[in-house]
Write a protein that binds this DNA or RNA. Structure first.
Length: 477
RNA sequence: CGGGGUGUGGUGCAGAUGGUAGCACGCUUGGUUCGGGACCAAGAGGUCGCUGGUUCAAAUCCAGUCACUCCGACCA
C-alpha cells in the first residue's frame, strides 16, 4: 500500500483520471473489492467518512420535519410490477430470490433496488384521512442494483443510501417538498462536503422510472465529467394510484395522495474524491475527515518529544478537533506521504528543534503550504485553520465549476465545449431526438435544467428549432 | 451482449525455443536510525486459476473451462 510508485502512478492526473481514482481509493484503504463481482467492501476509513456524511445529513433531514424508519430488504415481485414505468426501469437489474433452501417460493422476492413499492404498500394502510398527512419518512438502508459495469462508490451492485418518502394532500405541497429537499442536498454539499452543484430539473429522458419530474444536483469532477450527486423526485399520483394510497379529505371526498422521494448515496464519497483530490491522493474537507489533524513526532524516542505531542493532542481534542498521534516506528517521511494520501487536512510536525523554539510545523493539505504556529496557541489556530480550509476548498471547487461552463448556441460549439472538458449550457427545444443526437455524436447527455431559466438564446442548440428550455449538457459518470 | 487483455507467495511482476520457480515491495525477528516514502543482518511464505491431453519431464506446448479486467450499449 505504501509503495513509492504511487506518486508516479497518479502524477498524470489529467491523462488517466479513472485509473487515478481507482488507485486512490484502494491505496488509501477506503474500499476493497468484494468476492462477488461488482460488490464493494467499505473499509473502516471509508466507512468513517460515510458516518460523518450520515450524521450531518441526518440532522438536516430531521430539522425539516422527517422521521427515520426502516422497511424490509425483500419485496414481493408483484409489488414492483404495480407501477408500469417503474417495473420497466428496474427489471433488468433486480436480484430475485426464488428459493429458500431447496424449496421454490410461490412468488419470487426481489432485493430492493429502491423502496417506493414496499413503502407505498405500508402507506396505503397507514393513511386514511387528511389528518394523517403529510407523512414524512426517511430510511437509511442498502439497496441492490445489478449493473453491468461497476466502479467503487460510483456504481456498485450494492450501495448504501438515504431515501426519503413523503406523502402529501396536494400537488403544490408535494412539489414544494421535492424542491425543498433538493435545496437541503445542495446546502449540505456546499457546507459539509465543500462541493458546488448545479441544481435543476431532469429531462423526461433522464428522469427516474415512475416519477412525474426528477430534480437533481450535478457536480463537476476534475476531469470535467458530471456526477449526479443527489436526486429528488416528484411522483405525482403514479404510486398512490398503483398502491391505492387514498385519504378522506376535508370536503368528504376520497382522493389519491401526492408523493415525493429523494435520495443520496455512498456515491457522495466518490464525488469527494474526484472534486478535491490531487496528485498526492485524497483531500478531505475537515467536516467529514475522520482524522482532522495528525501529529507526527520527529525523533520520537526522545521523551520530551512524545510528551509534547501528548500535550498538543490533548489541547486539540479539548478544542473539539479529531486528532491523532502517529507514534508507529515508520519514518517521518513515510508518515508525511501516508497522511497526505489519506487527505488529512492538517499535519502537525513536532521535533526537538520545534520544542526549543516553542513552535510546530503545520502543513495544510489543501494548499500544501507549511506554516509555523506557536505551541501555546496551536489548538485555537488549528481550529480556525480547519474552518478556513473548509471554505477555501468550496471556493476553489466553485471557481473550477464556474470556469468550466460554456454557453453554446449550436452543435459545433457544444462539441468544442464538451471536448474541452466543460459543461455546455444551451437552449433546447425539448425533443428527445436532440438528446439522442447529442448522445450519439458527443457521448454527452443532458444534465438538468436550472431553476433560473433566463434565456441565453431563442433557438435549440441542437436542431435550431424554437427553444423551450435552458439546459446543461455534459459527459457523465 | 460485441472487441481487447490478464491469471505465478499478501501485492506488483519476471520466467525466450519444455528440465519441478525467481525479483521488488510488504510481513517476522534483532540492531542502528528518524525534519519528505531510512539502513544492515537473519527469516517465514507459492503443488504457477481449474480440467484434460502431448511428453521420460509442463508455469512453459495443445484443447476446453472458469474468473477477473479494459473499451462500447444501460444506470445513483
Amino acid at each position: 500500500m505504501a509503495d513509492k510508485e504511487f506518486v508516479k502512478e497518479i502524477a498524470d492526473i489529467e491523462s488517466d483520471f479513472t485509473q487515478w481514482y481507482t488507485d486512490v481509493i484502494l491505496k488509501t484503504e477506503l474500499v476493497d473489492y468484494g468476492p462477488v463481482k461488482g460488490t464493494m467492501v467499505i473499509r473502516p476509513y471509508g466507512y468513517e467518512i460515510w458516518e460523518y456524511i450520515q450524521k450531518e445529513l441526518d440532522e438536516r433531514i430531521k430539522l425539516t420535519g422527517h422521521k427515520n424508519a426502516y422497511f424490509p430488504l425483500f419485496i414481493p415481485e408483484s409489488f414492483l410490477q404495480k407501477e408500469a414505468e417503474h417495473v420497466e426501469g428496474f427489471a433488468p437489474e433486480v436480484a430475485r430470490v426464488t428459493h429458500i433452501g431447496q424449496e421454490p417460493l410461490a412468488e419470487a422476492l426481489v432485493v430492493r433496488p429502491t423502496s417506493e413499492t414496499i413503502i407505498c404498500d405500508m402507506y396505503s394502510r397507514w393513511i386514511q384521512s387528511y389528518r394523517d398527512l403529510p407523512l414524512l419518512i426517511n430510511q437509511w438502508a442498502n439497496v441492490v442494483r445489478w449493473e453491468k459495469t461497476t466502479r467503487p462508490f460510483l456504481r456498485t451492485s450494492e450501495f448504501l443510501w438515504q431515501e426519503g418518502h413523503t406523502v402529501h394532500a396536494t400537488e403544490e405541497e408535494a412539489i414544494e417538498e421535492t424542491i425543498k429537499m433538493l435545496q437541503v442536498y445542495q446546502d449540505f454539499l456546499k457546507e459539509v462536503l465543500a462541493i458546488p452543484v448545479l441544481a435543476g430539473k431532469k429531462s423526461p429522458k433522464e428522469k427516474f422510472a415512475g416519477a412525474v419530474d426528477t430534480y437533481s444536483i450535478e457536480a463537476m469532477m476534475k476531469d470535467g465529467k458530471s456526477l449526479q450527486a443527489g436526486t429528488s423526485h416528484y411522483l405525482g399520483q403514479n404510486f398512490s394510484k398503483a398502491f391505492n394510497i387514498r385519504f378522506l379529505d376535508k370536503d368528504g371526498v376520497h382522493k389519491y395522495a401526492y408523493q415525493t422521494s429523494w435520495g443520496v448515496t455512498t456515491r457522495l464519497i466518490g464525488a469527494l474524491i474526484m472534486v478535491h483530490g490531487d496528485q498526492r491522493g485524497l483531500v478531505l474537507p475537515p467536516k467529514v475527515a475522520p482524522i482532522q489533524a495528525i501529529i507526527i513526532p520527529i525523533a520520537a524516542k526522545k521523551p520530551e518529544v512524545m510528551q509534547k505531542c501528548e500535550e498538543v493532542l490533548n489541547a486539540l481534542k479539548a478544542a473539539g478537533i479529531r486528532a491523532q498521534i502517529d507514534s508507529s516506528d515508520a519514518s517521518p517521511g513515510w508518515k508525511f506521504n501516508e497522511y497526505e494520501m489519506k487527505g488529512v487536512p492538517l499535519r502537525i510536525e513536532i521535533g526537538p528543534r520545534d520544542i526549543q523554539n516553542g513552535i510546530a510545523m503545520v502543513l495544510r493539505r489543501d494548499t500544501l503550504t507549511k506554516i509555523e504556529i506557536k505551541l501555546d496557541s496551536l489548538a485555537q489556530e488549528a481550529k480556525a485553520l480547519l474552518d478556513t480550509i473548509q471554505t477555501d476548498m468550496y471556493n476553489k471547487a466553485d471557481d473550477f465549476l464556474r470556469s468550466h461552463i460554456t454557453v453554446v448556441s449550436n452543435l459545433q460549439e457544444m462539441e468544442a465545449a464538451i471536448q474541452n472538458k466543460h459543461f455546455a449550457l444551451s437552449m433546447w427545444c425539448g425533443d428527445r431526438a436532440c438528446e439522442d443526437l447529442v448522445k450519439e455524436k458527443l457521448q454527452a447527455t443532458s444534465r438538468n435544467m436550472p431553476f433560473d431559466q433566463t434565456p441565453c438564446g431563442d433557438k435549440c442548440a441542437v436542431c435550431g428549432k424554437e427553444a423551450k428550455h435552458k439546459i446543461y449538457w455534459g459527459k457523465a459518470y
